[in-house]
């Protein structure tokens, strides 16, 4: 039952991300709700389930992107594993630490996807690159408390 609820939440978050209202788009950036959910899954579920949700969220995101390979699927699985490893080294019980982790992961995720976009020959002005990198990560981190709360309620 809990798993079905989590699945439904993933679907709702994906739908929300795909039809994110224009008035909530700040500086042409939108938050990565699916990334937040994957990170929340690492904190509130066992590693196996978190990885499954990582694959699911990554696939959902990749399906709607023009890139042909599943960069987000790979990255989401990587982040889930990395955060679990990090949890063994430092305490990740405090909410603020969790939000900081979201900020760092969103920032790194943006760097990788941004650099990959440039690497395939696309031209992105430096200002827009930095804007997407910084504002995108901050926006994602700012919305993480809501997604965390939702994930916590469902998994409780």
């Amino acid at each position: 039952m809990k798993k079905w609820l989590l699945l439904a939440t993933v679907m709702v978050l994906a739908l929300l991300q795909l039809s994110w209202p224009e008035f909530l788009v700040f500086f042409h950036t939108r938050p990565d709700l699916l990334l937040i959910f994957v990170i929340a899954a690492v904190f509130y579920l066992d590693l196996k389930s978190a990885l499954v949700f990582g694959v699911l969220c990554g696939l959902l995101k990749d399906v709607f992107l023009p890139q042909s390979f599943g960069i987000n699927t790979v990255l989401f699985i990587g982040w889930a594993g990395a955060i679990r490893l990090l949890g063994r080294q430092i305490s990740t019980e405090h909410d603020l630490i969790r939000y900081t982790i979201v900020l760092i992961v969103a920032f790194l995720n943006n760097i990788i996807i941004g650099l990959q976009t440039i690497n395939i020959g696309n031209y992105i002005p430096a200002g827009i690159f930095l804007r997407n990198l910084i504002v995108g990560a901050l926006y994602t981190a700012a919305l993480s408390p809501f997604v965390f709360k939702l994930a916590k309620k469902i998994t409780a």
């Binding site: 994906a14 991300q17 795909l18 039809s19 994110w20 042409h28 950036t29 939108r30 990565d32 699916l34 995101k61 709607f64 992107l65 023009p66 890139q67 987000n72 943006n110 996807i113 941004g114 976009t117 997407n132 995108g136």
Partner: peptide
């Protein structure tokens, strides 16, 4: 019916 899910591409469905 849908827009790009990230900020690194400007695509739609």
């Amino acid at each position: 019916i849908a827009r790009s899910p990230d900020s690194w591409s400007s695509s739609a469905t």
